[in-house]
């Protein structure tokens, strides 16, 4: 894996490299380099399996991290290609032509994070949420508790406990549980 990353660094501008395990590494690329890198990994290095495509919301830095995880099933190793997108211009080129199944991931990211993938098939169709008008719910600034309290009524007679406080009481009854 180390050798592969060294080779990639000579061809692509990788701004960050993390060797998580012997068979798992993460690299960060620019928007322009993403597609050439994915094509190179798929066609030249044997990373033919798109394991997943997902996003991480780093709201404090105002960026979305897109992670394209590719697997080489013969060599038994994976590489996570990370791309940082500005949160306020959340749009990325589609890769459904490289892996048809990417269209599903992109459709979900459009709905759950509000990250657009123009040209991706059915990207604007409702995927899981029908008629959703609020903030994309997997963004960090979407408050699930507030939404739930505003949208639903508590069941009559139902008592709730704060999960953290209750667990602390059960697991560590001898501790000072006031604080």
């Amino acid at each position: 894996m180390q050798t592969l990353i060294s080779q990639l660094q000579t061809r692509f501008q990788l701004s960050e490299f993390i060797l998580q395990r012997d068979n798992l590494a993460f690299v960060t690329v620019t928007r322009e380099q993403l597609r050439p890198l994915l094509l190179h990994l798929r066609d030249k290095e044997g990373f033919t399996h798109l394991v997943l495509l997902t996003a991480v919301d780093w709201i404090e830095d105002n960026i979305f991290q897109l992670t394209y995880l590719l697997g080489d099933r013969t060599a038994g190793c994976d590489i996570g290609v990370r791309l940082m997108l500005p949160r306020d211009v959340a749009s990325m080129d589609s890769i459904h032509d490289l892996w048809p199944t990417a269209a599903t991931y992109q459709r979900e990211l459009r709905e759950m994070f509000g990250i657009d993938f123009p040209e991706s098939p059915r990207v604007d169709e409702d995927f899981i949420l029908e008629g959703w008008t609020d903030l994309p719910p997997y963004r960090r600034d979407f408050d699930t508790l507030k939404y739930s309290q505003e949208s639903y009524v508590d069941r009559l007679g139902r008592e709730t406990k704060d999960p953290a406080a209750y667990m602390k009481l059960k697991l560590y009854p001898d501790e000072d549980n006031d604080g």
């Binding site: 409702d126 995927f127 899981i128 719910p137 997997y138 699930t144 667990m167």
Partner: peptide
């Protein structure tokens, strides 16, 4: 078509400690 069973597991986990 999916969505009949969505419970937002991934989002819920962001508000819970690792063990929870």
């Amino acid at each position: 078509h999916v969505g009949y069973l969505h419970r937002g597991f991934e989002k819920l986990m962001e508000r819970r400690t690792f063990i929870q």
